[in-house]
């Protein structure tokens, strides 16, 4: 059997999802954003709801997400995606409505919008990319930056007396009555990518079926902001981020 015999349409087992278009993504090499974009496109495609989906883009590296996945999108101002999503979902209750937000967007400038949308139990899904840094603007400290972690604005490492403590925003979300599903995932390995995809599917189904708010945190890397190779960034995340932001479900009210 030659390679040509194998490379035939009927033998195709995996490839770029068709909702992800051919526009080259602007993300740095190895960036977690790309993997999560792919999962979102795959899940929407598998649910067959691309005509009844609205995504809300953040400000941050994912500001151009609307260029890459062929669904309807709205670009919200910084941190306001959950407020925007609340409005869309109330007007179009049968649509899948989700936001896609970084840690600076969700846990700093948009903390108020996020907590209150979740507390109101808006029937939206929030995908939260926690790379513990402001990637887009050049690697400044974020509310989720780890203790001792060096960034452009804490070059000697984050110190509690000067910078306060990392904000456990996902844990806070799990205590709110409006949330039905709160989980923390990662996309560093094949096994974790599979789990993250299931989590995104669950969150999207919750939005469509109006079960309350869902929050899917993806503990992510930012190799440029962290100044590491993508491979090293994954290792650093496993060693430093996972102990502080442990993976798994924090809340799932629909699970028997």
């Amino acid at each position: 059997m030659t390679t040509e015999d194998i490379i035939q349409p009927e033998n195709r087992v995996y490839g770029k999802p068709s909702l992800m278009n051919d526009t080259p993504m602007h993300y740095c090499p190895g960036c977690s954003h790309g993997v999560v974009h792919k999962l979102i496109a795959e899940v929407i495609e598998e649910m067959g709801i691309e005509e009844k989906t609205v995504g809300i883009c953040p400000v941050g590296c994912a500001v151009f997400a609307y260029r890459y996945v062929d669904i309807d999108w709205i670009e919200a101002s910084h941190g306001r995606a959950p407020a925007c999503a609340s409005a869309v979902k109330r007007l179009w209750p049968d649509h899948l409505v989700f936001t896609y937000q970084g840690d600076g967007d969700l846990a700093c400038i948009g903390t108020g919008e996020t907590i209150h949308a979740l507390n109101r139990g808006e029937n939206i899904a929030i995908i939260f990319i926690n790379n513990a840094i402001y990637g887009m603007t050049g690697g400044q400290m974020a509310p989720t930056t780890l203790m001792g972690m060096k960034t452009a604005t804490c070059p000697y490492g984050r110190q509690p007396d000067l910078h306060g403590f990392p904000l456990h925003v996902t844990d806070i979300a799990s205590t709110l009555e409006g949330t039905c599903y709160v989980t923390r995932q990662a996309v560093n390995t094949v096994a974790n990518i599979r789990k993250a995809k299931k989590a995104i599917r669950q969150a999207f189904e919750n939005s469509v079926n109006k079960r309350g708010s869902s929050l899917v945190e993806i503990v992510s890397t930012c190799s440029s902001g962290w100044k590491m190779s993508p491979e090293k960034a994954n290792q650093w995340m496993e060693e430093n981020m996972f102990p502080y932001y442990p993976l798994g479900d924090l809340k799932n009210v629909n699970k028997e």
Binding site: M1, R12, K38
Partner: peptide, 16 residues
């Protein structure tokens, strides 16, 4: 495995 972790969706996989 290679294609699933690729952030840019560059790899198509065939199996027979």
């Amino acid at each position: 495995s290679c294609a699933m972790v690729c952030p840019d969706g560059c790899i198509t996989v065939y199996r027979k």
